[in-house]
Simulated scan of single mutants.
Amino acid sequence: MGTDWALDWVRRSAAVVAEHKAELSGLDRAIGDGDHGENLDRGFRAVMAKLDGTTPDSPGATLKLVATTLISTVGGASGPLLGTAYLRAAQSAGDADELDAAAVVAVLTAARDGIVARGKAESGDKTMVDAWTPAVDAAARALADGGAVVSVLVAAAEAAEAGAEATVPMVARKGRASYLGERSAGHLDPGAQSSAYQLRAAAAAAQG
């Protein structure tokens, strides 16, 4: 996967966030501040504006542009968390022109580890980690089974979607949703859902 894939991933992420902006904010309204969709959409619109003026020359450079833009434009907790994810992913990708399946797994793992390090959350806390960790685990299994890059990314996307859905019955232990205690159960976590959308965008970009 080269720069064209990374750029397509970003464009697809921006499009799916814009499409589901109201849904994501609605999910956040139930257990948080109600601005997750708006904030994320603003961030990705800023990313697209940056890309209008420059074309990164590697997947890593593309991911770094996303990272710095999200950190500077997205409010709430999701800006620093996702910004850190994309920054760690960029560092993992390095200056390579193309990423093979193993490198893609490493990129996804680095992104997840960045979120965990920044947010101090773990699986079961009802956060975006509940989408990212299953995605990383599924990607690693696909790689171990000899899967190509597309197979790795599709496995990650499917696991992220299942992981997001699995947050519904959870009681939040981190973030603003944790203030609700037991009342946070029964709601889909907005960060997990938006993460699943972004990981599906990565797979769709690989599939062409």
Rank of each mutant, 00 (worst) to 15 (best):
S13N: 04
G94L: 02
D137T: 00
D35E: 06
E98L: 14
V129R: 01
A196S: 07
P190H: 04
H36W: 02
L70C: 00
A164G: 04
G34E: 04
D4H: 14
G94N: 00
A159L: 05
D189R: 01
D8H: 12
A204S: 15
L188G: 07
L27Q: 06
T54D: 12
D145W: 13
T3Y: 12
L199R: 09
P169A: 07
S13Y: 06
T62E: 10
L7A: 09
A164D: 01
Q193S: 15
A85K: 01
A22S: 15
L82H: 00
G186W: 11
T69H: 05
R200Y: 04
N39F: 10
M1K: 05
R45W: 07
R141D: 13
A144H: 11
L51T: 07
K50E: 11
K120D: 05
A90M: 04
D52S: 14
T55Q: 15
S58K: 10
V171W: 08
E161F: 11
M128W: 00
V168D: 04
A15Q: 11
A77N: 01
T133H: 09
A139Y: 02
V104M: 08
A201Q: 06
H36K: 03
S123L: 15
E23W: 13
A61S: 14
V136W: 04
E98V: 14
A135R: 04
G83L: 04
E23D: 15
A157Y: 06
L7M: 13
P80W: 12
A89V: 00
A89Y: 03
A185H: 05
A30D: 03
G119Q: 02
G208K: 09
R11N: 12
T133C: 09
S25A: 06
A156I: 02
V17L: 13
A49H: 10
E38P: 08
M1H: 11
L63Y: 10
P190M: 03
A203L: 02
Q91S: 05
I115T: 03
M48F: 08
A205M: 08
D137K: 06
D97Q: 15
D52P: 09
L87V: 08
D97Y: 13
G181V: 00
L87N: 03
D145Q: 14
R11C: 12
W132A: 10
E158W: 12
E98S: 15
A46N: 08
G147F: 09
A93F: 00
T133M: 11
G76M: 10
W9Y: 11
A135V: 05
A177G: 07
A61L: 13
V16W: 10
P190I: 00
M170I: 07
Y179F: 14
L188D: 01
A205F: 09
D95F: 13
G34M: 04
Q193A: 15
A192V: 02
D97E: 15
R112C: 00
L40C: 03
A201T: 09
A77P: 01
L63N: 08
P59G: 07
V149H: 10
V149S: 10
M1W: 09
V168A: 08
A196I: 06
W5R: 00
R176P: 03
A162Y: 11
V74T: 05
K50G: 06
